[in-house]
Amino acid sequence: MKQSIMKKVSLFLILTFVISMAAGCSSKKSGDAGSADQKAIKIGTKNFTENLILGEIYALALEDKGFKVERVFDIASSVVHTSLVNGDIDLYPEYTGTGLLAVLKLPLETDPQKVYDIVKEEYAKKFNVVWLDYAQANDGQGLVITTEASEKYGIKTISDLQKNATKLRFASQGEFDIREDGIPALEATYG
């Protein structure tokens, strides 16, 4: 897949700051994050393994710093953003590409820094939500084929795959078949 199509989407942790929580924490002495009257930070996750793991990592990191954490895991991907905006959760791991395409419904952009800048600005304006600095990890779409099918049809590239598309069964997960950076991008590039 061409690099512009195969963009790597950095993982981001988005977080809304609840003024009362910030005020409550700022009045405490340093190192007193875990006091009994502290409000728990509600961490949400989407309902797939990678997001559950990331949510748990964030929860453990906050607990390690003395914060109370309430896990609100396994939220349907279609409603997790609404849960954040409505205050049902305080933060969750999100992808810039998902923020750009699925939430903001803006056109595809393939430059990772531009995507981050756009979602950071638009989430602040539209939802009063803060995107934190992105994690040093990324998640990109990819295609895999069995060795048997690759050898049988001589498929080594996506162009080879396109030439043999009628001979193969294709399966995808999530929204790959409808997202602008998934099948529609492949079709626009390769036919």
Rank of each mutant, 00 (worst) to 15 (best):
A135R: 00
G182V: 08
L143H: 09
A188C: 01
Q38K: 01
T166S: 15
K42I: 11
F176M: 11
N164Y: 00
I43N: 03
P112T: 07
G24N: 13
P107D: 13
Y95M: 11
D74G: 15
M1P: 09
K2R: 15
G154E: 04
Y116Q: 03
A76C: 12
G142F: 07
A185V: 02
V103R: 03
V72G: 02
P107I: 06
G31T: 02
E94Y: 02
D139S: 14
V85C: 11
A33W: 04
K114F: 09
E180D: 11
P112V: 07
E122R: 08
G174P: 05
K68Y: 06
T45W: 00
V119H: 03
F48V: 07
I145T: 11
E187R: 15
V18M: 01
P184E: 02
K29S: 02
G44Y: 08
E50P: 00
D139Q: 09
T98N: 09
T147V: 13
K126G: 10
N86W: 05
L52S: 11
Y92H: 13
T96P: 05
F12T: 11
T146W: 02
M1Y: 14
Y95S: 09
S78K: 09
L106F: 05
T147Y: 07
Q113I: 08
K2M: 14
G34F: 08
S30M: 05
G24I: 01
T166W: 00
L101V: 09
W131V: 08
G66M: 03
D160N: 05
Q113T: 08
A76S: 12
S30W: 00
A33P: 01
I158M: 13
L186V: 06
V72K: 04
Y190R: 06
Y134Q: 07
L168V: 10
A23F: 10
L132S: 12
K2D: 15
E151P: 01
G66Q: 08
N138Q: 08
I155D: 04
S77L: 08
K46S: 11
L84Q: 07
L54T: 13
V103A: 00
G182S: 09
S20E: 15
S78A: 14
N47C: 07
K126I: 03
E121I: 06
L101G: 09
T166D: 12
K68A: 08
A23W: 04
